[in-house]
Design a protein around this nucleic acid. Structure first.
Lengths: 240, 240
DNA sequence: CAGTGGTCTAGACCACGGA
DNA sequence: CCGTGGTCTAGACCACTGC
């Protein structure tokens, strides 16, 4: 394990167990260097992680402070909410001990329209898989997904792959690495068909997440639109 | 201007002007060190910025690559969408040359309920300003905001401040610095009153953004709930 | 095995905050 | 003024990719 991860994890643990409370000032960089026997830059990198995840704020000239936040509020679970948004529906819900099912509504090979082809870096004559799935947790339909994946990037997709976790297929079977996702979020209403598949009344507001997924070398591998029911929440931290 | 900012800005410009195209490999770290006459760590920091903003991907052992993305897609404007989400409604829309108005629906001093008081680090007997505003751009109502701000942190708020930009009041008049925001996003329907104020039909889906804002020393200064109409989109980039 | 990016160091120097 | 965190360097070493 990297040194800066050890430092970040340990300081995070000390915040979680109450040694450092909201609004407390943390030890100075120099003190942390001594405590963990690492250099200043390593402490800096560790603290930058905690800033990125919203646990602390640092101010030149005055010090580092634990953010005034209760664990009971917006800030649920381990505090690693952002990263869980990259592991996929199945892994996320199974980690919570929920029963996960997937209903494949459609699975075909198509030429995506030009907007989607552009986003995926595809020529007009290339093919992509098109998958429409309803994801179900504990017998309650949660979300309907419409996904396009270029065949040249994600080859040989089969029925058995798409009824489980496509992310696992990509990372474990194909040996590729998922790097990042660009998302646009809106509020929408279900179509008649969606209301039926998601088992919600017509007029129920849904959270739409449009996403382009990228491999770790920057290649786009997925364009998907998801319509989330059941009061799904998206969590995000911004920094100046 | 810092060296890593110069490097990051210049590489970003070279991507924007087409010198580096989507899926191209960037110069190696060593080459960039020579081009800009800086050290390896400075190039690393500059490239980390670009990774964070979704422009490039880096892979140990093989190189750095421009992400396969058109400017015309999700990736609008200057590519700095995330950071614009920290400047407030007025500054954001005036930067687009739009006429901005604010209708103050309510302005009072209250004891917030215990959940909000907790999130703002307030004792039960403390007071907070409560503001309800409708923000209007080019004569079209865009969003209705319900905001709580602790008086101890944001003192002496007046009518004239809330009809402009509260963020400007905090940063320019009070001399405080805004640091970060934690947001939770859902889809909701307007109440009857909201539909009227936002001038949308009942049943129009709205994007709800619940937010706790923090100063740069980690003090929470704002709890707000916003209901956005007009197909407002929220943009976000996640990394593994 | 060569080439790439990632981590880490010790130490110099700078910018900012607050008494 | 001192104490804080931020930037930057030169260079050592490590980890991963891909031929």
């Amino acid at each position: 394990m990297l040194k800066y991860e050890i430092v970040a994890d340990d300081v995070r643990a000390r915040i979680a167990n109450g040694e450092f409370k909201p609004n407390d000032q943390l030890p100075t960089t120099e003190e942390l260097c001594e405590q963990y026997d690492v250099s200043k830059i390593t402490v800096k990198k560790a603290m930058d992680e905690l800033v990125l995840h919203g646990l602390i704020a640092r101010r030149r000239g005055s010090g580092s402070f634990v953010k005034g936040l209760d664990d009971t509020g917006l800030h649920k679970g381990t505090g690693w909410n952002m990263s869980s948004q990259m592991t996929g529906f199945k892994n996320e819900h199974e980690a919570l001990g929920e029963k996960v099912e997937t209903k494949v509504e459609e699975f075909s090979v198509v030429h995506p329209d030009s907007e989607i082809a552009d986003l995926l870096g595809m020529e007009p004559d290339e093919f992509a898989y098109y998958v429409c799935r309803v994801r179900i947790a504990n017998d309650v339909p949660q979300v309907i997904e419409y996904t396009y994946m270029p065949i040249k990037t994600i080859p040989d997709l089969r029925e058995k792959n798409i009824s489980g976790s496509i992310y696992d297929y990509i990372e474990q079977d194909l040996g590729l690495k998922i790097g990042s996702a660009h998302r646009t979020i809106r509020a929408v209403l279900p179509t008649g068909n969606e209301a039926e598949l998601l088992d919600v009344p017509a007029g129920t507001p849904l959270l739409e997440v449009k996403q382009v997924g990228f491999l770790d070398d920057g290649t786009p591998f997925e364009y998907s639109t998801s319509h989330h029911a059941q009061d799904y929440e998206f969590y995000s931290i911004s920094t100046h």
